[in-house]
Design a protein around this nucleic acid. Structure first.
Lengths: 232, 232
DNA sequence: CGAAGCGTTGAGAGCCGTCAAACTACGTGG
DNA sequence: CCACGTAGTTTGACGGCTCTCAACGCTTCG
């Protein structure tokens, strides 16, 4: 890694949690690499060579079974992935592909485990990160099992709207196809869901979304902090 | 806690991971308590007062939304729950009820967090526990999104059979209603699924299950280590 | 201009949930 | 020991949600 890259990377919370004197060891064998869209970064079943951290761009996490595939998450800058696999030194449970051209920091998993063993502060940061990740998947499981696709879509719109300033209009951050994956439905179903949402005064034009009646959309979504709030 | 209870509790892996000198502090405010069936141990949304560890019996983890409810796990002896909430000091994401009369070790969450902060070995054990738990929920999410109810049921039977010695016959460890919850389907659907499984030579008599053609059941289930193997 | 990919729309089917009724198993009290 | 009530289980009927397949329009990019 080049010197100016250290600054960028030092701001990543996980790395910052390691004691000053351990950081060089963490970054010695690390790569900060640029990948074009569609590249498959990791594949489920492989042994964990690197902890991956998204510095720029978007990454989709997914999993295959028979001839099916499902999205288990979409990550943006600042998010790490496959941390659990690295800590336990067990095979990846999911694959990852680049959605939009991305820069990924890859830290050798031995380095992570080595610092984990000698740096208590780092270990505690990992614990918190994992606890957050655990709650994230659990919320997703609840989202899937307790809500219909219409409710999930509505809840997603309400939350994304809030995250982008509550202006009641925004652009989708990725293709509708990817959003459908995130919501756990087929693209055709999402398309029809948007039609249904017209009765709740949601207007869709390409990637542009207008929420003209937030109250009624919110009522439909029944937002629940224990499912929707990423900080809860 | 009475002295003889310390032995029992010392064998719980999480507690055993704490340094000898910290164990008394962990257990000082702890309770080892017996609960009858149906008692609700915790309720989602509440602040985490205690880390719970199942010493004996079975506990069902579930979650509510609107007028719906879904099971997110069933635990037996040795399992802890709501660790993530305790570590982060955030509200429970799930509720828990006793299925069959159980003994639960309840450790005050402040004690957990206090030892977590000063005992690096304990912190690392927590990390591993959380990493395992993370992978567990993720597998469950994949199980739900990638498989049909028939496949989930078949996979569950194949795995439980393996776990109980591969004798191709066993008793269900809980009511079919609870199994249906675990599999994420309505009880009526499970009942019909068992009828369908007759063509794969699965015989069901009350709680008793006979697998008369493991190969064909296995073929149906397409077991996948990255979904089914609890150790993977 | 043509190819490729995304998005929409229609048609059809299958999976799964709900409601209702009947049947069974089990435990309690008489 | 039996009667009864409760809870679990099964079965039927039905409907709705979601998937798949297919066709078509649109945009993008080579």
């Amino acid at each position: 890694m080049r010197p100016e890259e250290f600054d960028l990377v030092g701001s990543v919370s996980l790395i910052a949690a390691a004691a000053e004197e351990h950081r060089p060891q963490l970054l010695r064998g690390a790569f900060l690499q640029r990948f074009p869209a569609h590249v498959e970064l990791i594949r489920e079943g492989e042994p964990p060579d690197f902890l991956h951290i998204v510095v720029e761009g978007q990454v989709e996490l997914f999993s295959r079974y028979r001839d099916r595939e499902t999205t288990v998450g979409v990550l943006g800058p600042g998010s790490s992935f496959i941390l659990a696999a690295v800590v336990l030194d067990k095979p990846y449970l999911k694959s990852a592909r680049v959605l939009s051209s991305a820069r990924i920091l890859m830290v050798p998993s031995e380095a992570i485990r080595a610092i984990f063993d000698i740096d208590a502060g780092f270990a505690r940061a990992l614990t918190r990160e994992l606890a957050q990740a655990y709650r994230g998947v659990l919320k997703e499981l609840k989202n899937q099992k307790l809500r219909s696709s219409l409710e999930r879509t509505a809840a997603w719109l309400v939350r994304f709207n809030a995250e982008t300033g509550g202006l009641n209009q925004f652009d989708l951050p990725f293709d509708k196809k990817v959003l459908a994956g995130r919501l756990g439905i087929a693209p055709e179903v999402l398309s029809r869901t948007f039609v249904t949402l017209q009765s709740y005064r949601v207007r869709v034009a390409g990637r542009r979304i207008h929420i003209e009646d937030l109250a009624s959309l919110t009522k439909l979504a029944s937002p629940d902090n224990l499912i929707d709030d990423p900080l809860a």
